[in-house]
């Protein structure tokens, strides 16, 4: 008979990490109507509204018809909002309901926690982006010029937003705080960072401001993957995304490690 003892594992607790990730994915998948279908319908509505309202009035942007320009922006907007919503709501609900201890007690270290929770957000972002893209393809033809950029930016942007969601979920004490960050920061940034128009249309000063905004690079780079046209140098976008992801990862890791607003 084997003596009872604590379970042993190597440098990484793979079972724990896999379980946490699986839980995060099942959390949104079990209510897929709300978490996948709803953003898809909203994305299609925006597409209809902007094409019907602006299709004839807005000139081609960078030699592309407005629809071609709009579609990648809308997909990215959907990805960003959903990756953020997944992680932020997961932590927020766990804190409000008091079952956050179930996350903190298991033998998972701060890095495994960060990756497990963020992984769920990335998965939701990518799944929602993919389904929205396919649905839009039914109505408008979509070409992909550089698949590598599409995949990189979909994943990098999902990770960025998932990590931002983790930080918000840890920091927020009430649903109001979460709603405030969503309404006053995430939605405005995802609307105003070039989703619906080219930043070259902005006045000089605002162009400079726009280029300091990571949201701009994720939309711009993602769009480059589709239409082969970008407002900013594409490799700058890749570097910015990697840099911001790394910084957020470090902060999220630190917060989990210290137990900031999580442990008594």
């Amino acid at each position: 008979m084997l003596p009872l003892s604590s379970r042993r594992y190597g440098a990484i607790n793979w079972i724990g990490l896999g379980t946490l990730y699986g839980k995060e994915v099942r959390r949104f998948w079990s209510v897929a109507t709300q978490t996948v279908l709803a953003p898809l319908v909203t994305g299609l509505l925006f597409l209809a509204v902007f094409v019907l309202a602006l299709g004839h009035r807005v000139d081609q942007i960078g030699g592309q018809p407005y629809v071609d320009f709009l579609v990648p922006g809308l997909i990215m907007m959907t990805i960003a909002q959903n990756a953020f919503a997944n992680t932020s709501s997961s932590l927020m609900i766990a804190k409000v309901q008091g079952n956050i201890v179930d996350l903190l007690m298991p033998p998972l270290n701060a890095l495994e926690l960060t990756i497990g929770v963020a992984g769920g957000g990335v998965t939701r972002g990518v799944v929602v982006g993919l389904t929205t893209g396919i649905a839009m393809m039914v109505f408008v033809p979509i070409d992909i010029a550089h698949p590598g950029f599409v995949i990189f930016h979909a994943v990098a942007a999902s990770l960025l937003m998932a990590l931002l969601g983790i930080l918000t979920g840890i920091w927020a004490e009430k649903f109001d705080h979460l709603a405030a960050i969503t309404n006053f920061i995430v939605t405005p940034l995802s609307f105003l960072s070039g989703t619906f128009y080219s930043t070259t249309r902005l006045p000089e000063l605002w162009q400079t401001v726009a280029h300091l905004n990571p949201f701009f690079y994720m939309i711009d780079g993602f769009r480059y993957g589709f239409i082969g046209h970008a407002d900013a140098p594409v490799w700058t976008g890749v570097i910015v995304m990697c840099g911001v992801d790394a910084v957020l990862l470090v902060i999220a890791h630190r917060w989990f490690q210290r137990g900031y607003r999580l442990k008594a």
């Binding site: 902007f50 309202a53 602006l54 009035r57 807005v58 109001d176 709603a179 405030a180 309404n183 006053f184 939605t187 405005p188 609307f191 105003l192 989703t195 619906f196 128009y197 249309r201 902005l202």
Partner: peptide, 23 residues
Amino acid sequence: NYQLLGPAVTALLYLAVFRLALH
């Protein structure tokens, strides 16, 4: 805070987006 300001900000966003996308 978010029951009045929230809708106001969202509405402002819709208008801003159209303003910027149009000539």
